[in-house]
């Protein structure tokens, strides 16, 4: 071996990949944050349901808390379960 790599320092950025650009509840971009937050990123994460729909966690929690009987996905009306 003429040249060996001893160490490598990598730099990468991350962004959300969702099946939609905007949150179906607040209509804000997933790259941004929900209306109650100031900064996007770790503080305002996204969650996926088993129905594969995706929302800001703050938005879907607000929605679920307002539902008295059954927890349904606001997009497809299936029962809402968090995807692990």
């Amino acid at each position: 071996m003429k040249v060996t790599i001893r160490s490598w320092t990598g730099v990468a950025t991350w962004r959300w990949v969702a099946n939609d650009d905007n949150c179906g509840i607040c209509r804000m971009a997933f790259d941004g944050c929900c209306p109650d937050c100031k900064l996007p990123g770790d503080d305002c994460p996204l969650v996926w349901g088993q129905c594969s729909h995706c929302f800001h966690i703050h938005c879907i929690m607000k929605w679920l808390n307002s539902q008295q009987v059954q927890h349904l996905c606001p997009m497809c009306r299936q029962e809402w379960k968090f995807k692990e």
């Binding site: 060996t4 001893r6 990468a12 991350w14 959300w16 990949v17 996204l46 995807k83």
Partner: peptide
């Protein structure tokens, strides 16, 4: 660990430390 996130490598900012062993002296 982090579902739903996409990584973009910024290679122009990455650094490596190399060992050159084809020369008279080894260089880092």
């Amino acid at each position: 660990h982090f579902n739903g996130r996409k990584l973009t490598w910024l290679h122009h900012l990455c650094q490596a430390e190399l060992k050159l062993s084809y020369l008279k002296k080894p260089y880092q």
